[in-house]
Every structure is written in C-alpha cells, then in structure tokens.
Design a protein around this nucleic acid. Structure first.
Length: 425
RNA sequence: GGAGAGAUGGCCGAGUGGUCGAAGGCGCUCCCCUGCUAAGGGAGUAUAGGCUCAAAACGCUUAUCGAGGGUUCGAAUCCCUCUCUCUCCGCCA
C-alpha cells in the first residue's frame, strides 16, 4: 500500500512516478474521495464527541439519582443522523482503501525507465555459456532419455504442468535445495524457517493484492486459505501487526517450500518441460530491515542468490527490471537469469525485490526507530533459487554427448558422491 | 469429533453497564536522594486515525480490552456469530 500521507501532500509527483511504470492514477477520483472523507469524518466525530459528553453527564446525574431524561432525549434526537454519518464514513473509507490497495508501489529513482522486458538493463554477466561439440538437447529430452523425468505419469495423476522425478534426478532435486539452504544459513547468515504452505486471504493481501492476483492462486474450497505461490507469503507475514525493537533488525530468513501457481495468464507459454509448473520447489530469502539499509540489503540478498549459481558454475546474468516490467508491490527488482543451452537463452531463475514499506504498511509491520517512534519496516525477498529451474539448468549445462549428465562438484557430497547420472535402462 | 475453561496494555493481573484507555504489580525511561553496590522517593510509559498548523510540538477529537455484529443515552462488562488458545476424552502421521 502506498503512503496515504504522501498521496495527500505530493499528489502530482506521485502521479508522475506512477506513470513511469505505466499506471494512470485517477487524481480526480482521489481528490473528491478525500474531500468527502474529510467532511464526513469531521462531522461524524463531532457528533460522536457530543454523544460521549452527554452520556457522561447522564451517568453523573444518575449517580446523584437525578433526572436525566432530557439529556437522553437529546442524544436520541441525533441518533439517526449519527448512524447515517457512520455508515457514510465507513463506505467512503472502504472506497478509499480499495483505491489505495489498487495502486502499485513507487519505483526507486535508480530504476531504469521502460515499457517492457526489452528495456531491462543488464547489471552483470557471470560465466561464459559452454560450447558443445554435439547437438544439445533440452532438459525434457535429457531427463526422459535418462528415464528419470516423467511427464506422462505426472499428466495421468494431475494433468499438465506437473512433473514426476525419479532416481538420481529426484535426488539431485533434493540435493539442490540442501545446498541452497546450507549455503544461506552457513555463509550468508540466514535463519532457516519452516512455514505453512497455506495462508489466509489476509496474509496474501499483506504481501500482494489479493483482489488483483487471486486468479493466480489455488484456493481451498470453502475456506479462506490459499496455497502459497512462494514462501514470501507466509514468511514476510511473520512480522505482520508487530512492532519490532530496533535491535531486532535485520531479520533474515531462508525457507524451502513448494510453490503453487495456477498460471492462469500463461496459456501456451512454456508448456514444455519443467520451466513453468503448477507446483515447484523454491528456496526463498526474506529480509526485514531498517529503511535506511534496505537498498544495500537488497543488493546483498541478490548476491546471496547469485552465489548458488557460482557454486554450481552455471552462467548467468543479472538484470535490473525497468519501470514497466516490475511487479505490483516492488520498488526495485533484480532478475537473475541462468543460461539454458536447450533454449539458447537466459531464463529467469530468481527475482529479488525491495518492497520498501509497501508490504509493511499493508501488514502493519513496524519497528521502533531511533526516535522511539513506530515506523514501517522495509521488506525484501528473492528466490535463492528456484529449485526446479536450477535442476533444468544443470541437466542442460552438464549434459554429455552420450546422454549422461555430470553432477556439479558441489552437489556430489549431497548425492552419495556420484559424479554422473546415467540412463536407468 | 465430544465435554469444559479462557482471550484485557511490553509482561503479569483486577475490572461493579456510567467520571475506564482501563486499578495494582513487574519491566522500561527520566528526575531526586545516596561518596561504591543495594535500597528509597517522584514523574512518565499503548496503537492507528482525524482536525488545527507552513511543519513539528502542543491542543482538541475519534476508534481500539481476540474479530465482527447487536442491545443501550452509555459496553472491557449484557446478547449473538466467528477465530484462536488451554484442559480432559476419542481418533490419528
């Protein structure tokens, strides 16, 4: 949620900054709602104050066993008007809130301007895509020929966009998650957490906009519960409706969960293979930080995610998303893209965003600052990394001409020391 | 699933339909006293809004005692619904 005070005091500049990310703010609607709110709210509160004062007098009179019927009649006389005003106030505040909740975050000044993914800016490129002296296959062909990646069985059980992994590939999938978790807790100072895979609508709305994105989520029938599309949902909400002490910051959590996405808006996109699934595993990094330090923490978190790719010796590049390509809640986003030989392309494997106070205001996550005043915290998160896509990248980058796949050195200890995955046949 | 108990400020804990945003205690902050330490005395100490203001402070004001409704001139207190916690029984990975 955008800062209401800012909207009131700097409407023009806010509108301009929102326009950079392609959002047209309806200033007129806002101003007229604000005007209405102000009038209705002051009128209502005036009447409430009067009622409270009179009621107090009634109590005093009754304590002295005197007649209070005149005062009671006076309160009754305004009761209907008060009720009407209270209703109006509720309605205008509801509308105002809905309006606010529909406004995306303001982009940081350092975010490049642009309209689409084409305008994203490359921040760095690490590693060089390997050249192969044979015709490369994509992960689907590799995995199926190994007999350890099975989309037919998955389809039979659950339908499209699911996968079944077997034997060494299944084990590698698990090993990847272990490597990521261990790296982040041992080398980057994160605290491992295990969290629910179902969250309430309220929590979903805290990190994103439930009304805007509920089609992307799987909902539990008849209950206010959603399957998480990322561990960001439960973990960021750890601090919802809390006031943290200054010395508790920063909080750094790492959490491995499956993620569930309906992929409602991506029919026909990435239908082949494991790139875009209804269910995939992800190791998520979440930081709750002091506002003064969110930018540096965001950069650091992104490097924490990149460290995994370095360990796996996978070529990648890191992009700064332009204003037009950023997510709704983000003030700045880095995408990490891994090289996939099967597609001859860099594909997203992590997205690291600084939400600044946007989520914190929605969640009412605050801390006591140096002046002992409550202030919203800043929240940051990023994939560190998507496990399924990492598996895809390894299969494709480590493939050999005979159809086998080398196991990256760093994963071998997690896989009983095996150095290569062979076909089961 | 059955039976019962409960939810109050940072924490513990009191609370009769009326001067209760809430006694008392602990903790914390500031001040005083005390030549160390300990003890003692005093004051302060919720959150989110609104109005006023250039702005902050002050001031005025509204809401909040798990959540949401209701009764009432007036609700922490009475009624209804929901959520959560605890105890016992049953079932169970």
């Amino acid at each position: 949620m955008i800062d209401l005070q800012l909207l009131r005091t700097e409407l023009a500049s806010v509108t301009e900054r929102l326009a950079q990310r392609g959002f047209q703010l309806d200033c007129q609607a806002f101003e007229s709602m604000e005007l209405e709110r102000k009038k209705v709210q002051t009128d209502t509160q005036e009447l409430q104050a009067r009622r409270n004062a009179l009621s107090k007098q009634v109590g005093q009179l009754k304590a002295k066993k005197e007649d209070a019927s005149a005062l009671m009649a006076e309160v009754n006389a305004q009761a209907e008007q008060l009720k009407r005003l209270e209703g109006e106030l509720e309605s205008v505040q509801l509308r105002l809130n809905e309006f606010l909740m529909g406004i995306p975050n303001l982009p940081q000044a350092t975010v490049p301007q642009g309209h689409s993914a084409d305008d994203n800016v490359r921040l760095r490129e690490v590693g060089v895509p390997k050249t192969f002296d044979f015709t490369v296959k994509d992960h689907v062909d590799i995995g199926e020929q190994l007999g350890q990646l099975d989309f037919d069985t998955a389809g039979k059980i659950s339908g499209a966009r699911f996968s079944v992994l077997k034997k060494d590939v299944a084990r590698m999938h698990r090993a990847i998650a272990q490597l990521m978790l261990n790296t982040h807790i041992e080398e980057h100072g994160y605290t491992e957490v295990y969290a629910p895979y179902l969250v309430s609508g309220e929590c979903a709305n805290g990190v994103s906009s439930l009304t805007k994105f509920k089609d992307d989520l799987f909902k539990i029938e008849g209950r206010d519960l959603y399957l998480i599309p990322t561990a960001e949902y439960p973990v960021t909400n750890f601090v919802r409706q809390q006031i943290l002490n200054l010395d508790q910051l920063p909080l750094k959590f790492v959490c491995h969960t499956p993620c569930f996405r309906s992929e409602a808006g991506s029919y026909g996109k990435d239908t082949r293979g494991m790139i875009r699934q209804h269910q995939f595993d992800k190791v998520e990094l979440v930081q709750i930080v002091h506002p003064d330090r969110s930018a540096e923490a965001h950069d650091a978190l992104t490097l924490h995610a990149e460290a995994i790719l370095k360990k796996l010796e996978l070529p990648y590049r890191t992009m700064v998303l332009c204003t037009g390509d950023m997510g709704f809640s983000s003030s700045k986003t880095y995408d990490i893209e891994v090289w996939l030989p099967g597609q001859s392309a860099y594909r997203e494997i992590s997205s690291c965003s600084n939400f600044e106070a946007f989520q914190a205001r929605r969640m009412q996550a605050r801390f006591r600052n140096e002046k002992n005043k409550t202030e919203p915290v800043h929240t940051i998160n990023g994939s560190g990394l998507a496990v399924g896509r990492t598996l895809v990248a390894i299969l494709e980058n480590y493939q050999c001409s005979d159809g086998s796949v080398m196991v990256p050195k760093v994963l071998q200890p997690y896989m009983g020391g095996i150095e290569r995955i062979h076909s089961v046949a």
